[in-house]
Amino acid sequence: MTLAIETSQLSRSFGDFRAVDGIDLRVERGTFYGFLGPNGAGKSTTIKMLTGLLAPSNGEMRVLGYNMADRVESIEAKKRLGVIPEDLALFDNLTAREYLTFVGRMYLVPRETIRTRIDELLAILGLEAEEKKLAMEYSHGMKKKLALAAALLSNPDLLFLDEPFEGVDAVTSRVIRDLLAGFVARGSTVFLTSHVLEIVERLCTHVGIIVKGKLVEQSSLEELRQSSSLETRFLEMAGAGLDGEASHKLPWLEGVGR
């Protein structure tokens, strides 16, 4: 099977701090890849590098077979990518429809197709009543939905989603899950980060766990489950303490009164 994402010793430092430390990712096409890690582990930095938002300090990376370090090839790759970056990429002063039209045109989607897809995406994501509001007036969840609509609009081969379920209501969460499952079912690839293990467990076929910038686990969910549950494995890898250990470290939290 060909690879959608392949990295070799991919690293990124900020001054002395190594946010991503020589990771070797291998994501096969047609998989739903969940990229897990505690806060500050390097998940978003990795996605930024893979999508061309951030230059790596070291290492190589190929996305959909294109070398992202090469300017010409990275543009070719971008034509086939959909991305929800960590802090989104919305224009404050554009309405939802204007923003989606802009994105569609930047991917050279025909005008009529853009209109149809915008109508469908806004309706399915529950944004049709808010389409005339400016992005700056949207709540965080609505902004996430708009960013997802933009990522899907060009019908990409590979979706990078940084915390797509954060701040999204349960109904929309269900819609997004369905959309993504259908997207993968037709042979496309999703690479997502999430803090919600339950969602990863339900949706993903493969997982990678990053801790302190290092990729400590990478396998199919099936293989991982053979030894233990995803949560147990994740907590082990992330170095979490035993149940109840934290509260013992703060004895003044126990008991009533002061």
Binding site: G52, L53, I75, V83, P85, A89, F91, M106
Partner: peptide, 15 residues
């Protein structure tokens, strides 16, 4: 002036 929206330009395949 684009602030966060500049990401849209970096991500897009436009020359």
């Amino acid at each position: 002036l684009d602030r966060a929206a500049f990401r849209a330009y970096v991500l897009c395949p436009a020359p």
